[in-house]
Design a protein around this nucleic acid. Structure first.
Lengths: 191, 191
DNA sequence: CGTCTATTTGAATGTACTCAAAAGCGGTGG
DNA sequence: CCACCGCTTTTGAGTACATTCAAATAGACG
């Protein structure tokens, strides 16, 4: 199985590349194998990579002043992950990214990202659609956080992301839902 | 003051258009004046327009099954507003959009949006950046909703959007923050 | 096997909501 | 111009949802 097959297939859903463009693009990617429970980005460090997840599972989170963790997102195969704001604006990261499982990723540096968009403007379209989907997904999350109580949010989460729900700890789910692990445990007992 | 001056200036921050391209683009826009407290999009109706706000103030919100309103966003001059998911996917709207003040907007239909992106691919870049900013803003909102209590969210809101805070009712702010108007009133008394 | 972390359980507490009623405020018609 | 109407805001009591803290139990991993 060629390592770039999956990423090219994902891109082909939105834009059509010539063979040369495909090669140029894959030439900008750096393949990495990362063991379970490894932090690949820490708060305060430069966030220079956008990671396409080829296999495995990762999580991004932030810490508040009291040390409380909030999970920003989980990412499985075929998702893209970074601290988007800091990647795009070349700011020190405000978040942490860690592997949940042994994972393989294809990294696109910010330098190569800019280069790619200049060299093959079609990629503007691809990333426009990527950002669009991320935006609408995140907007829905905002609204659900405001309108639903913890139990309803939990139910939606496990229905929407059954595979994630199976692979992460309850503590991590709680931190995604914005509740304490104790309260999530209480919710689960009730059901 | 030419009606298209502001929108072209906003676009010029991200992409450079020729005079002909500018004319082509503005030719796709429909100028509308909308009085205060007018609903321009209602849930269940086709969401065919992306509105650039030339002047005034608007609000998008949704209703849950109990009739509770949640404000999705406020939008002032130089913002873009629609039910993005439904606009892009040509689905019936899940939200309402109404004017808070007398407003003027420039509407871009979904048909013209698609046409624009085909005719002038540079606009892919513009909308990529627009979506990018919307995404990172919305992600920050999600996290703040999870980590901050109502009082902290209120304080951040009035600091971040002082002009909006001055122009909308407390009830509307409460529905943006995901709290009841009664509780917002209580918070304000304390400070 | 031992250690470390995740999960469960329960009591006490805090945050935010519901419901009801009163007060304030803005727009409209007489 | 003012009185009335409808909506917003305030206030308070009672309640529900969710947290904190502490301690016990269960699981994962070397």
């Amino acid at each position: 199985m060629e390592i770039h097959h999956a990423i090219l297939k994902t891109i082909a859903k939105h834009i059509t590349l010539t063979r040369e463009e495909e090669d140029f693009f894959t030439g900008l990617l750096v393949y990495k194998e990362i063991p379970k429970k490894t932090t690949l980005l820490a708060e305060g460090h430069p966030c220079t990579q956008l990671s396409y997840i080829h296999s495995g599972a990762l999580r991004s989170y932030c810490l508040d002043e009291k040390g409380k963790e909030s999970t920003i997102m989980f990412a499985m195969s075929d998702w893209w992950l970074t601290d988007m704001y800091c990647y795009l604006n070349e700011q020190p990261s405000m978040t942490f990214i860690e592997t949940i499982e042994d994972s393989t990723v294809l990294n696109l540096s910010k330098f190569n990202f800019d280069h790619l968009l200049t060299a093959i403007p079609k990629f503007e379209r691809f990333f426009r659609i990527l950002m669009q989907n991320a935006y609408t997904r995140e907007q829905l999350r905002s609204i659900e956080n405001l309108t639903l109580n913890a139990e309803e949010r939990y139910t939606r989460f496990i229905n929407k992301y059954p595979q994630i729900a199976r692979n992460v700890t309850q503590k991590q789910i709680a931190s995604y839902l914005g509740i304490t692990p104790e309260f999530l445990s209480f919710i689960r007992k009730k059901r």
